[in-house]
């Protein structure tokens, strides 16, 4: 049963991605990418990552769609039509094939004896109860065990905000010209 839900959702995800990328109208494409994020969030719930699903639903389907729509109101609404590019398609397929070969070496999906589950994760799960006393293991790992990491991520978000404010937050040169010229008019 779990497999069917999982497989259906992830196939759905691929279909939405194809539909989004085939769109010539950018508005439709952005809305489909919002739907893509929402289905991805559902899939994260199925894969037991509730915190990640929460974030993806709020960020991917919410904020990033809003930002994309704001951008769309300033750029042309349609993409320039062009045919399928051969070289990038071959490159993408080759990368996919290479990864498929690599994936066949990965442990089976859901296997409890995979190396990833036997190194530090049990320590985190036991420690979260005994040393930190926080039932949500994700929170205790995020804020305590990997506190340095999260500090770095917060600083990245901070830096990105400063960068956006520097790029589009201020006035353009054209604006200052207009205000100067109107001031001249008043003086004259």
């Amino acid at each position: 049963m779990g497999f069917i839900i999982d497989a259906t959702l992830i196939a759905f995800l691929a279909l939405i991605a194809i539909a989004a990328l085939r769109r010539k109208q950018l508005f439709g494409m952005v809305m489909l990418s919002g739907a893509f994020s929402l289905v991805a969030a559902t899939l994260f719930v199925v894969l037991d990552a509730v915190d990640v699903a929460f974030t993806e639903a709020a960020v991917g389907a919410g904020i990033s769609t809003v930002l994309a729509l704001a951008t769309l109101s300033l750029v042309p609404a349609e993409e320039k039509p062009h045919s399928i590019a051969i070289v990038p398609a071959v490159l993408a397929l080759a990368t996919g094939l290479l990864l498929s070969v690599a994936v066949s070496d990965l442990p089976e999906f859901g296997a409890a004896d995979a190396p990833i589950h036997n190194h530090v994760a049990p320590e985190f799960i036991i420690g979260s109860e005994e040393k930190i006393g926080v039932p949500n293991v994700v929170t205790s790992v995020l804020a305590s065990y990997r506190g340095y990491d999260t500090l770095g991520e917060t600083v990245v978000v901070f830096t990105a905000a400063i960068a956006v404010l520097l790029i589009i937050g201020g006035w353009t040169r054209r604006e200052t010209e207009i205000t100067e010229s109107t001031e001249d008019d008043h003086a004259g």
Partner: peptide
Amino acid sequence: SNPLPHVLILTAIVVGVATTAVGYA
């Protein structure tokens, strides 16, 4: 399930939207 990938991806999503915003700008 293993909490460690969840933590990594949780922060990566928020950082992802912040860098996407820089791209749109």
